[in-house]
């Protein structure tokens, strides 16, 4: 079954930028992780998001919509990226979430609603 790994982290904890010391290492940990997912046949998709300062929220309420600058909720931690994976059990999904090379942060693991047969 499919699981979404939502990567949530505090944007004030900076990760290395291109050119910084340790950037190569940082990036290679992520590409290795993605490669491991692919090798295990678990990879469906995954992307990193630009920082929450680039977010725009469209809110639907009372039949109309408003467009607001910023993410949908003012939280200390922001959605930074996601992986969509396909594994057999929650335990396997939690294991992949544990292995994510995030220094600090949280991974919300959510089963994707099954679509087959509906």
């Amino acid at each position: 079954m499919k699981y979404m790994l939502l990567i949530v982290s505090d944007p004030t904890i900076e990760s290395p930028e291109p050119g910084d010391a340790g950037f190569e290492e940082y990036m290679s940990a992520w590409s290795q992780y993605t490669q491991d997912l692919v090798d295990a046949g678990a990879y469906v998709s995954g992307e990193a998001l630009q920082d929450a300062g680039t977010a725009t929220t469209v809110r639907h309420a009372a039949g109309s919509t408003t467009v607001v600058d910023g993410p949908f909720a003012e939280l200390k931690e922001h959605l930074g990226g996601y992986y969509l994976i396909d594994v057999d059990t929650l335990d396997a999904a939690l294991d992949w979430a544990r292995r994510l090379p995030v220094g600090e942060g949280a991974i919300e693991v959510r089963p994707v609603f099954p679509t087959d047969g509906y």
């Binding site: 079954m1 699981y3 057999d88 059990t89 929650l90 335990d91 999904a93 294991d95 089963p111």
Partner: peptide, 11 residues
């Protein structure tokens, strides 16, 4: 059921 928690001896 929804999250697929297995009835297994865990790792």
């Amino acid at each position: 059921r929804a999250a697929g928690i297995p009835l297994a001896i865990p790792a």
